[in-house]
């Protein structure tokens, strides 16, 4: 039981680091924003595993929804 939860913890954190690294090295802007959103969504999953569902709902709605919307508006306005 405990080892299973620890395996999910470690794999989630490793995928978060990979997604953050991809958000830096992508050349196009839209895939970079989507990688940042994936990192935020995995952070929400990590909050849920740590028994904080309130923070998980707020992170999934703001970090993965509204931040991506505002970045997409900025890209559409400057292109």
């Amino acid at each position: 039981m405990s080892s299973f939860v620890e395996i999910i913890h470690i794999s989630t954190l490793i995928m978060m680091i990979i997604a953050g690294f991809l958000a830096v090295i992508f050349k196009k802007l839209l895939p970079s924003i989507i990688a940042l959103t994936v990192a935020s969504l995995l952070l929400s999953l990590e909050f849920y595993i740590l028994h904080a569902p309130d923070v998980a709902i707020a992170e999934a709605a703001i970090g993965a929804g509204l931040t991506m919307a505002i970045f997409i508006f900025a890209i559409r306005g400057t292109r």
Binding site: P53, D54, I57, A61, G65, L66, A69
Partner: peptide, 17 residues
Amino acid sequence: PGGGFQGGAVVGSAFAL
């Protein structure tokens, strides 16, 4: 789990969609 702030953020993300 949840509350005013979380539910309002979910409805706001629907408006953004």
